[in-house]
Amino acid sequence: MRLGLLTVLVLVVDSSTPAVTAALVEVTADGVTSRAQRSTVDARAHGELLAPQVDGVLAEVGARPAELGAIVAGLGPGPFTGLRVGLVTAATMSQVLDIPAYGVCSLDGIGHPAAAGEPVLAASDARRREVYWAVYDGAGQRLVGPEVGAPSVAAERARELAVTVAVGDGAHRYADVLGLPLRAEPRYPDPHALAVLAAERIRAGAPGDPLTPLYLRRPDAVAATARKPVLP
């Protein structure tokens, strides 16, 4: 599909961090324009917040869901339960509306816009004293990651890659361990950046992606062991 002068209205969702985000952008042949954005920082209410925010951004621009032409979803990495809310929302809406859904690594939504000419470490909170992290070059291309691990390990890799600045909520939380200057924004995945990273695919009318979460960790589960006898 060639879009020519057409404009595609795109819904962007990300629930990989404590920020629950829904946004509408317009993708045209030569740019990506923000139309509406709702973002709430509440790590425990992703399931409650996201759908009303999607409804809210649509109402704000006076658009019906059927006017959407594509959906962009942050694939994580992120704490699993919250992360799935965004992905299932994108997958189900894409099914009903018969429009493609594109996945983008959520850390790219932090690292890409922050990498203005110098390499940057992007990190989000992975709980259990760990971070999800990736390193970007000066042009915002991901060099390493996404990975999950101790902030000290991320800091060491960042030093090896001559990183000069860190960004993201995880970087703020572990600033002392990372020992790098911090960039204030974006703290959480930026929906405009996520849309920019999917814009080529949107313009080309590429087939949608299977929205597979970047879990990076296996489920906590242990195989059943031998039964303990009840007799002494």
Binding site: A51, V54, L58, P65, A90, A91, T92, M93, V96
Partner: peptide
């Protein structure tokens, strides 16, 4: 629940 909301919002 999130799936039901996604279907509900998209299909109104």
């Amino acid at each position: 629940v999130a799936a039901a909301k996604g279907y509900a919002v998209a299909a109104e």
